[in-house]
Amino acid sequence: MSKTLEHYQHLHAIPELGLVEFKTSAYIAQRLETAGFKVTRNVNGTTGIIAELDSGKPGPVLALRADMDALGHIIDGQLVARHTCGHDGHSSVVLATAQEVMQEGIVRHGRLKILFQPAEELGTGALAMVAGGALDDVDMLLGFHLRPLEECAKGKAVPAMLYSACATVEAVISGSPAHAARPHLGINALDAAVAAVQAVNSIHLAPNLTWSVKATRLLCDAGVTNSVPAEARVCWDLRSQYNEPMDELKAKVLTAIKHSVAAIGASAEISVMKEMPAAIVDEQMTALIAESIVEVLGEQGLTEAKFTPGSEDFFHYPRQRPQVKTGFWGLGCNLTPGLHHPEMRFDLEALAIGVRVFKQCVTKVLG
């Protein structure tokens, strides 16, 4: 009997932020060990987990990946961790899949690896797992994500989710303070920040590309209203459907910030705080997923591949290890009002569908 809902209820009640998923990781690792997997904890010094099942017979190495971290929300003035991106659902599905694959003796040749990854929301978890050797012997890697209702309803699934590249750029802009009555004696960091925002807004890429850049945070305060502020912090969110235009966009943003603030005598310390690549999916893996979806949900349950302006650190895996064939699919679950919304909810019965699709994939590759 599937323990998917049991896992979900437990994990949903203990949300933890990226890289501090201690209780989450301990729960998952203990159950994998009890199921009979060889388990490696604390991958690369993180909360990451690698579980292995070796059939003892030659064959490919297939890996399934789930993310474990929750999001931080300010609620009633307090920062709280809350599972509003469905990672508790992802972990529950992959954990239950691993248990059932072991119980049913599905793996008859090759090896199955199960990856539980920290810090997806920080954009660093996949990179930490790669550095910890998680993919060194992997031939194929599959992941998935719960989808919002407007993209995919319960009873349907998406064979390939085509995520966008994203980056977060921060500029710490330095001017010099002065009395507001004598602004010529200082350099106004707020003016420089506004100039930088306007300069970035003037960037253009080819109009046939899907991309965006926008300022998302501006912090500037001299402490009083009659002084010229000496420092400002500005963040920009960058998005691109493909990786190559993202490289061009990022270069233009960095140049625009640097020269616009310099025009009024300020300077900027610019950093790229987070980057996630655009989707890289293998046609063979997408076909495998599509066949598995049809076998579980019928032809009517299979949708076309879908593009999303959201981003996923899963795609660091194929970017870092291009020899690994990757597939990433979406599970319809009537999720509302949206991912990352503090009151996000979905139909829990859909989680069982996720387990069945993954089991079909494992059966086709290793059965």
Rank of each mutant, 00 (worst) to 15 (best):
K3F: 12
L5V: 14
H7E: 02
Q9W: 12
I14Y: 14
G18Q: 06
G18L: 12
S25C: 07
A29G: 07
A29E: 09
R31N: 07
L32C: 00
A35G: 04
G36S: 04
K38E: 13
I49T: 10
A51F: 11
A51S: 06
L53Y: 12
L53G: 03
S55Q: 04
S55L: 11
G59P: 01
R65P: 01
M68G: 07
M68D: 02
D69A: 14
A70G: 02
L71T: 05
D76P: 01
G77V: 10
L79F: 12
V80L: 02
A81C: 05
G86F: 08
V93F: 11
Q99T: 06
Q99Y: 12
I106G: 00
H109L: 01
G110M: 11
R111N: 05
L115K: 02
F116N: 00
F116H: 02
P118E: 05
E120G: 04
G125D: 01
M129C: 08
L135Y: 10
L135M: 15
V138K: 06
D139S: 05
G143W: 14
R147C: 10
R147D: 00
E151A: 08
C152E: 03
G155R: 08
A157N: 07
E170D: 02
A171D: 04
I173T: 05
S174K: 15
P177I: 15
N188H: 10
A193N: 00
V194G: 00
V194C: 11
A196F: 12
A196R: 03
V200C: 01
P207Q: 13
P207W: 14
N208S: 14
T210M: 07
W211R: 07
K214A: 14
L218Y: 13
L218F: 14
L219M: 09
D221M: 09
D221Q: 10
G223V: 05
T225V: 10
C235W: 09
R239C: 04
R239K: 06
S240D: 00
N243Q: 15
K250P: 00
V253S: 12
T255Q: 08
I257D: 06
I257C: 12
S260K: 03
A262Q: 14
A263F: 11
G265T: 04
A266S: 02
S267H: 01
A268T: 04
E269G: 00
I270N: 08
S271A: 15
S271V: 15
V272F: 08
M276P: 01
P277A: 13
D282S: 15
T286G: 02
T286P: 00
I289L: 08
I293W: 10
G298N: 04
K306C: 08
Y317H: 10
P318R: 10
P318H: 11
R321P: 00
T326Q: 04
W329Q: 04
T336H: 04
T336E: 13
E343K: 05
R345Y: 12
I353Y: 07
G354H: 09
V357M: 07
C361S: 02
G367W: 15
G367S: 10
